Amino acid sequence: MNDAPLPQPTTPAAGAPASAGAATPPITAPVDARIIAITSGKGGVGKTFLSANLAAALTRRGHRVLVLDADLGLANLDVVLNLHPKVTLHDVFTGKAQLENAVIKAPGGFSVLLAGSGMVEYSRLTPEVRNELYNVIQTLAPRFDVVLLDTGAGISDVVLFSVSLAQEVLIVATPEPTSLTDAYAAIKVLATQQKRQHVRLVVNQAARAGDGRAITGQLQQVLDRFVTTDSGRSMRLIHMGDIPADTSVREAVMRRQLLMQQMPGCPAALAVAQLANKIESTLLKPASQ
């Protein structure tokens, strides 16, 4: 393992607002790891559930996966995975622990780096938080095939900076109007401030097959009218899949278990597996056998 610099993002952070990356050192040398930010406009849409189960599905396909809880201050990945870490990202940031001691194995075989919860000092993007988070990702990314950043919801400076470190962005939304409105707002910010040309969309809790594709088309029409990228083209919204509404999801969440392990044959788990397959085929190198 080495500590090579992070790969150059496909859409550079240079377009982000000054508070979300002005002091970030330049990212130069490429590495094989793909960094994917999993984010949302609105909270409570199943973003962390998807991050954890997608990590399990990608691990099952042979990839080395790290999930970093980038929802600084309101972290809940530990709750979803029923983990009780002795060392968190907060301890690393404050110099109380080494980074290597904070990375632990989760159920499902992937690695996680958990953040402390209720840390008010992480509610805004200070230069210290920005540099510490950047350095953590720079150090860890080369050691994995894919890094999933489970960000907070919305368009705060902390969320936007976390997203700016990723090569690809996966927006999670539900069919509810408030979720779609907030998803549009987040996508617009990513186009105008981070100069992204495209983002990817997963529709969670879909009531019917085809809902997600129809929603993607509706959002694309709005983007075509109101959001233009630096290239002069509309922001491109790529539909990655739907996760159907499934009572098994709530059961797994309440039990603090991975759906991919406990009920791998349920509709939602099969949809997550399909999403992992699509991410592998479009974004990742095939796992070594």
Rank of each mutant, 00 (worst) to 15 (best):
A57I: 05
T59F: 03
S162C: 13
R250T: 10
N131Q: 15
G241L: 08
T178F: 09
I137S: 02
D145W: 09
A173G: 07
L113D: 09
G265S: 12
A276C: 03
N131L: 15
P127K: 12
L201P: 00
P25G: 14
V272I: 15
I104D: 07
G241D: 11
G232R: 11
P12Q: 02
V129C: 04
L223H: 03
L201T: 01
A4F: 05
M260F: 02
R64E: 14
V112I: 08
A22W: 11
S19V: 15
G108C: 09
G73I: 00
T151C: 05
K42A: 07
Q8G: 12
G43V: 08
S117A: 11
G44L: 11
R124I: 04
H63W: 13
G46A: 12
D71H: 00
K42T: 04
A276V: 00
A271C: 11
S117Y: 00
D91L: 05
A206R: 06
R61P: 09
S179H: 05
S281C: 05
S231D: 13
Y122N: 03
P9L: 01
L237E: 14
S40G: 02
P264D: 15
A55G: 15
K195G: 09
S234W: 14
S156R: 05
G265R: 14
V136E: 14
M254I: 01
I155F: 03
V120Y: 01
P7Y: 02
R236E: 13
T174R: 03
V159I: 02
A52G: 04
P5G: 05
P177W: 07
P267K: 14
I187H: 03
R208Y: 02
G241M: 12
D32Y: 09
F49C: 01
L58H: 10
L66N: 06
L50Y: 01
Y122V: 02
A55E: 13
H90C: 05
A70H: 00
A16T: 08
A185W: 02
R64P: 13
A214K: 14
N82S: 09
L270I: 06
I243Y: 13
S123Y: 08
I171A: 12
R225P: 01
A20P: 12
R225T: 03
L72N: 01
D224Y: 08
A214N: 10
A185Y: 00
R130G: 01
F161V: 09
L259F: 06
A206Q: 07
A4H: 11
R236K: 15
I27S: 04
V249T: 08
E128G: 02
Y134S: 11
N135I: 10
A183G: 11
K42G: 12
Q221N: 08
M119A: 11
P107K: 13
P30E: 06
I104Y: 07
G210K: 13
A97C: 09
I155A: 09
S179T: 01
D182H: 05
E168K: 05
A271G: 09
T48N: 00
V120T: 15
H63E: 06
V199F: 07
P267S: 12
L170W: 10
I238Q: 03
T88C: 10
G232T: 13
A20R: 11
A20Y: 06
V189E: 03
N82C: 00
D3I: 15
A269R: 14
G41I: 04
P12I: 03
V147I: 11
A183Q: 06
T88N: 11
V202Q: 13
L180H: 02
A191H: 06
V202W: 02
